[in-house]
Design a binder for these strands. Sequence first.
DNA 1: CGCTTAATACGATAATCTACGTACTACGAC
DNA 2: GTCGTAGTACGTAGATTATCGTATTAAGCG
Lengths: 115, 115
Amino acid sequence: MPTASVRALEHPTCEEIRLEGVLHALSDPMRLQIVRYLSRLPEGEEAACSAIELAIAKSTTTHHFRVLREAGVVSQVYRGTAKMNALRRRDLDTLFPGLLDTVLRADAAQRRRTD
Amino acid sequence: MPTASVRALEHPTCEEIRLEGVLHALSDPMRLQIVRYLSRLPEGEEAACSAIELAIAKSTTTHHFRVLREAGVVSQVYRGTAKMNALRRRDLDTLFPGLLDTVLRADAAQRRRTD
DNA sequence: CGCTTAATACGATAATCTACGTACTACGAC
DNA sequence: GTCGTAGTACGTAGATTATCGTATTAAGCG
């Protein structure tokens, strides 16, 4: 695994993560799709932004990842030319027990109904 | 209990309720406060819009109740001059099991931390 | 009927959000 | 150094949002 680059990315600390912000971040279909994707990775695994195929422009993708990061939903690190993303599962589970899983299950249920 | 007035209010059916819409409705502090208030009522109880003291103008309150209703989070009926509100607990629990309770618990946890 | 209370409708405004394209930067490979 | 890949920054357009004040409607009461 290549080391992280010097470029730093601002992440909210656990104390700074707000429920409203998390809910807002999750209330967009594109961002929900990103979170769903990341949630399927094995524990500890990361994915590059480009790994998720979204039907939107690249710059818009950047925007959505930023919203997720600033809300405290994902963590991002640069590795080479890639920016790797991971869910902040542990942090979210500590702050808001069960929230992430419940939302993901709700999302799965909705997709089952409407697909 | 007075009967409901003729004035009808549009509510989404269960099939029309979208997870994204629910999360968005819950991602506003004022609306979260309304939902918190309604969640504390005994099962089946309703509250008038005016029962909840919000630090905003009355017309803004109307707006937030409407967002909650259109997202499928609350149901509203006119009774006399009042408009009674209740959480759509049963519907939400059927569609998205555990979501409402988990969000309410997360909200309580956050308040415990930051108060 | 006229008064009061509860809530709405309307119109305005300022902020925020999503989306895009284009130009740019950082990194790794050659 | 040059090239390709990954992602950012910036400016912007269009939509939605949150807020307000004022005028208005509906219901119940005397």
